[in-house]
Design a protein around this nucleic acid. Structure first.
Lengths: 269, 269
DNA sequence: CAGTGGTCTAGACCACACT
DNA sequence: GTGTGGTCTAGACCACTGA
């Protein structure tokens, strides 16, 4: 399909203005706006990803194939894929192909872990699950997961160690429809690099985005005990909401972090 | 200049492989690698920015002009400008032109401020400078600013208010060669939206990147007093190093933040 | 070698903002 | 209307990977 002269294909229907624009009387404000072809392609690829057409870690079709499939030029596919790659949903490897991003990729092991040791490069982490139960969402968790208060969630707690040093205590709540089969046994048995690798491989849920809100708090007694810290000492509290495809929130997490020899690193630009 | 057939121009000298690659014996590992044209263009634009050829906020030449100036196609310039825009060094405005990013732009007022009120959208901030003196860099500040220990720096302290609520206490150290003329009077007199707007307009120094390291600490007595807080209460400590062009670090900053009704917001992807 | 992504060009036309 | 950036195409060739 060419952008200018060919009839719209059944796959992609670029809203050519004359026909696509609603009558002026139908919309008072805010023009319908023009959606570029590459954006539509991006949406189509996103849908394929969301529907699991391509599993995490596998190669997606080549640019030429995608161009043929969607009836656009390779350059247009390229722009769509470029954006998805810059959003960390795809990974391009020259000479090899384009792959679905996965938390099992070595480069992504610590994609969501901003905590670092003050000295040394070591991020040898290990976790110990403490509990895993079914529970009812309180108002904060329900709101975060966009569910009704009292909805069923799976909750778990764990400790994260940096080189055998207990540094983070996590309280996690997961959407029950996706993680209903999670048990402490399965958590203890898994040997993945990160919880998200485990979720991805065992539950087919890929976390693609997250928001964090950080605060300084005084350590609760139980948390302090887990971290070998004194109650009342300052801890970094991180509330995180993680989302999968289509922006669906599926994890709420509250982390308590020791920052006596560790810090949260962030780059601004 | 065409990529394939024309001789190299004096502006851009793409390292064509046959001639440019050093003899195998000269390098043991790690090939010299190929540098794309658009990368070279990007570097040239970056140099022009660093040398102040275009002031912050002004429009840079159109893509067609830049293409002519550098002897490449418009598409190549476009790719270079695209990347600089995605790094927040340039701002593209369809129909208007491409502009040098500035901390005076409304959309950039809070570019480096990740602190938000828990409730409400208001980020009406105001600051009060407390002190401004010349000092010697201690080892931490010297290291951050890539100077010798004991080098002269300008130090200042201030309080940042959110809607008349004192929320952040800042200790700031600045490279003396750039900010030697800064005084408490000038700080008190300035009415810019942010310190970086002020630095940009009055000292010609544009902050383009920063790194932050966050920790939870117990409030020092003096800091607590400034924030109307109790000494020993948990505060969020943020160490920031800000850089101008060519990655040069020019500001070290330590912020103590109340997080009782505010939080540090971050997005992960 | 073939297949992948990566670069570069040239040209046409669209969307948007001014004047 | 003119000028700006934005989209799209078609085609050529380069760089890298792995069989």
């Amino acid at each position: 399909m060419t952008h200018f002269t060919s009839p719209p294909s059944s796959f992609v229907t670029p809203p050519r203005q004359a026909a696509a624009r609603p009558a002026a009387s139908a919309r008072a404000v805010s023009a319908p706006a023009f959606t570029p072809l590459y954006q539509q392609i991006k949406t189509l690829i996103l849908q394929a990803l969301g529907q699991g057409e391509w599993a995490p870690g596998v190669m997606i079709p080549s640019e030429a194939e995608l161009a043929a499939r969607f009836g656009v030029s390779q350059g247009t596919v390229r722009k769509a894929v470029d954006e998805l790659a810059s959003e960390n949903l795809l990974v391009r490897l020259q000479g090899k192909g384009t792959f679905v991003a996965s938390h099992n990729d070595p480069h992504a092991y610590y994609r969501f872990l901003r905590l670092r040791a003050d000295a040394g490069e070591t991020r040898e982490t290990r976790s110990r699950a403490l509990s895993c139960t079914s529970a009812r969402a309180d108002s904060a968790i329900a709101k975060a997961l966009e569910q009704e208060e009292g909805a069923e969630v799976v909750t778990l707690t764990r400790i994260l160690f940096f080189a055998d040093d207990p540094v983070v205590y996590d309280e996690i709540a997961l959407a029950a429809d996706l993680f209903g089969q999670l048990t402490l046994e399965r958590l203890a048995a898994q040997e993945e690099r990160s919880l998200y690798s485990f979720f991805e491989r065992s539950f087919g849920v890929r976390m693609i985005r997250a928001e964090e809100r950080l605060r300084a708090v005084a350590a609760r007694k139980d948390v302090a005990d887990h971290l070998g810290f004194e109650a009342g000492s300052p801890l970094l509290l991180i509330d995180r909401i993680s989302r999968t495809y289509a922006e669906r929130p599926v994890e709420w997490r509250r982390s308590f972090c020791r920052t006596d020899a560790y810090h949260y690193f962030n780059e601004l630009s």
